[in-house]
């Protein structure tokens, strides 16, 4: 039996999520033994032709060329998984979605006419059917290995949709919001990081995106009670997952209520 073929695709991103695969130092060669790394330009100049049984897609869609390329990727892929906040929610570069991109281009480049870019940065699922979305900025490499493992065994990946609060409790970290009055996005953010920030005496900043059935209304009320002003709240919701529907709706409602 031949091993299934893996392809890793990059769109607008920082490379950190695909680096997570190379960061699985103890598992990388075992993964390479179970799955044929057929198309992974960051790791190899050899590119084997598709179709690919598994495609991992990093990055968001920000150019006309990439909007076409993702269609080809979908056509060549049997199972397509997005990895990270950019591919799953548009990433930090989705901050352009609330701004004037022509002005952004003028601010960064001397010759804006050389730049061919879309007005928005959007998630892969806005363009093609996605079979599974793995959140995180960056993703957790353990969760990535779990997703690859689940794919190899034909089962559903065990990626919990609950919030960071549960991981904090399990880790035994004292709640930074209750005990120290530190604003924290943990109650509305999906678990997966291991409740890192509260363990470092700071509030969660939402890099895994909205948890399932996140109660943003309650979070906004709690942050307001901690005297967080509206612009700060809007900024907190508009970072790496700002364009994920739950965070987006909440920040836009705040903006409208100004």
């Amino acid at each position: 039996m031949t091993n299934p073929k893996l392809a890793v695709w990059k769109f607008a991103s920082c490379d950190g999520c695909q680096l997570s695969l190379l960061d699985a130092e103890d598992e990388l060669l075992a993964v390479a033994a179970a799955i044929e790394i057929a198309n992974f330009p960051e790791a190899s100049r050899e590119v084997l032709p598709g179709p690919y049984q598994l495609s991992l897609v990093e990055g968001s869609i920000t150019t006309p060329h990439d909007a076409e390329r993702i269609q080809q990727v979908r056509d060549e892929s049997e199972f397509l998984i997005t990895i990270g906040a950019c591919a799953t929610a548009g990433g930090i570069q989705a901050l352009r979605n609330w701004s004037d991109v022509a002005e952004f281009t003028r601010a960064v480049y001397a010759t804006p006419a050389f730049i061919d870019t879309l007005d928005t940065s959007t998630a892969i699922a806005d363009h093609v059917t996605v079979d599974f979305e793995l959140p995180g900025c960056p993703i957790s490499k353990q969760q990535l290995l779990e997703v690859i493992n689940a794919f190899l065994h034909g089962r559903r990946p065990d990626i919990p949709g609950y919030s960071v609060c549960l991981e904090c409790k399990r880790r035994g970290t004292t709640c930074v919001m209750v005990a120290a009055g530190t604003p924290c996005l943990g109650p509305v953010t999906q678990a997966g990081c291991g409740a890192l920030c509260p363990a470092y005496d700071r509030g969660c900043y939402g890099c895994f995106g909205p948890a399932e059935s996140a109660n943003l209304e309650s979070l906004v009320a709690e942050w307001s009670r901690l005297d967080v002003d509206k612009p700060t709240l809007i900024r907190a919701l508009r970072t790496y997952n700002g364009y994920a529907p739950a965070f987006r709706v909440a920040s836009e409602q705040l903006e409208d209520s100004r």
């Binding site: 769109f11 607008a12 991103s13 920082c14 490379d15 950190g16 999520c17 680096l19 920000t62 150019t63 990439d66 990433g91 930090i92 570069q93 901050l95 352009r96 701004s99 991109v101 002005e103 952004f104 281009t105 601010a107 960064v108 480049y109 730049i115 870019t117 940065s121 900025c137 960056p138 900043y205 700060t232 900024r235 970072t239 790496y240």
Partner: peptide
């Protein structure tokens, strides 16, 4: 590599946010 406009969207952000945001320029 498509442009991501960090220098543009950093405007209006608070100075304490800059280490977390600019970290996202490069995962390596």
């Amino acid at each position: 590599e498509p442009p991501r406009f960090f220098e543009a969207f950093l405007r209006g952000r608070h100075f304490t946010e800059v280490p977390d945001i600019t970290s996202r320029i490069c995962g390596i």
